[in-house]
Amino acid sequence: MQTFDLGKEGLRALNSSLHALKGQTNMTAWEVINPKGAHAIAAGVDAPVDITVRGSTGYYCAGMNKQATIRIKGSAGPGVAENMMSGTVIIDGNASQYAGATGRGGLLVIKGNASSRCGVSMKGIDIVVHGSIGHMSAFMAQSGNLVVLGDAGDALGDSLYEARLFVRGSVKSLGADCIQKEMRPEHLALLADLLKRGEAADKARPEEFKRYGSARKLYNFNIDNASSY
């Protein structure tokens, strides 16, 4: 285990050490201590390593992550795992705004709650939130899956494209062009797998969720939908 004291050695030294791990490495276990809410911790990692951050992080922790498993033993600031490509990010606490924004792959697990705009513009990432999510979540979400064991705030899935949203609790309101959809067997199977990978299999069953998706009415300009543009 490589232990890195962020308070002492600084962010630049941390990220350049992590970026130096290209492809396969035998230094697979890392621990970051004294994060103290610093921004961009472990941003841009591209190696199959396991990084544990002992404490809470600022903006954009694990930004653009590829391959790495990053565990945050605290809460995460805005834009955690933004534009993640692959790998896994697991947050023990809560996540601030824009968690997983524009994520293209990999898995983001938030064991607490997520604030507004969770999964905004997501493009292929899977997000599993054990608690609830705030307003405007999955705004313009393009693809991937968002699973919420708790409730969703206002305007869920506004201007949604092809992302799939699964919410167990209540949804305060749906955004433009987002509708509830039928849960078919393939969705239950997908959800079972996501709950398992999201460390939530013992907390919820797939049958308890409702599925939401795009009505696809705003896909092409149409005068009858003018009020939604």
Binding site: N15, H39, A40, G44, Y59, Y60, G63
Partner: peptide, 16 residues
């Protein structure tokens, strides 16, 4: 203020 942090993140990802 956010933009400043965003730029810092992009610099970190690309090693300045």
């Amino acid at each position: 203020d956010d933009l400043e942090i965003k730029i810092m993140e992009l610099r970190e990802i690309t090693d300045w």
